[in-house]
Amino acid sequence: LQLFIKTLTGKTFTVEMEPSDTIENLKAKIQDKEGIPPDQQRLIFAGKQLEDGRTLSDYNIQKESTLHLVL
């Protein structure tokens, strides 16, 4: 599923993930694309901070959802 990642600077980029992927996987993918170390990434969806060990489906993140990346 394609997700939109929006940064505080207003930049938006996309990543391609599976619902079974963990937040950790997502942070690694963001590191590949943007060079931001996972330990500096905080991801927010629907007002909640996402925890590394959980999956996208745990948070009911669907295709074309927008996640906010806070550094």
Rank of each mutant, 00 (worst) to 15 (best):
T66G: 03
Q41A: 04
T7I: 13
E16G: 07
Q31R: 15
L69K: 00
T66M: 07
T66L: 11
D39N: 14
N60T: 05
Q40F: 09
Q49V: 15
K11L: 11
Q49T: 14
P37A: 11
E18D: 13
Q40C: 04
I44Q: 06
R42I: 12
T14I: 13
L67C: 01
S57K: 14
K63F: 10
N60P: 04
F45W: 11
Q31W: 14
Q40E: 11
T55G: 03
I44H: 13
S20K: 08
K29F: 08
L50S: 01
Q40N: 10
K48W: 07
Q49D: 15
Q2C: 05
T9D: 14
L8H: 15
E24N: 09
T12E: 08
A46W: 10
K33Y: 09
E24T: 12
F13W: 07
R54Y: 14
E18Q: 14
H68A: 06
L43E: 00
L3A: 02
G53F: 09
D21A: 08
L67A: 02
Q31D: 06
L26T: 03
I30N: 00
M17K: 01
E24I: 15
G47F: 04
Q62H: 14
D39S: 15
Y59K: 01
T12I: 13
G53H: 14
K27S: 01
Q31E: 10
F45K: 03
E24P: 03
P37Y: 05
D39C: 06
L43K: 00
Q49I: 15
I61F: 06
Y59H: 03
D39Q: 13
S20G: 12
Q49M: 13
I61L: 07
K27G: 01
R42N: 09
P37T: 07
D58V: 04
D39G: 12
K48N: 07
L69G: 00
G53C: 04
V70Q: 06
K29S: 09
L1E: 04
I61N: 02
K33T: 12
L1N: 05
L26I: 09
L43G: 00
T12M: 09
P19G: 09
S57L: 13
S20N: 14
P38V: 15
H68M: 09
K33A: 14
P38T: 14
K6A: 10
K11V: 10
G53I: 07
L3N: 01
Q41H: 03
T14P: 08
R54W: 11
P19I: 10
N60G: 15
L1M: 14
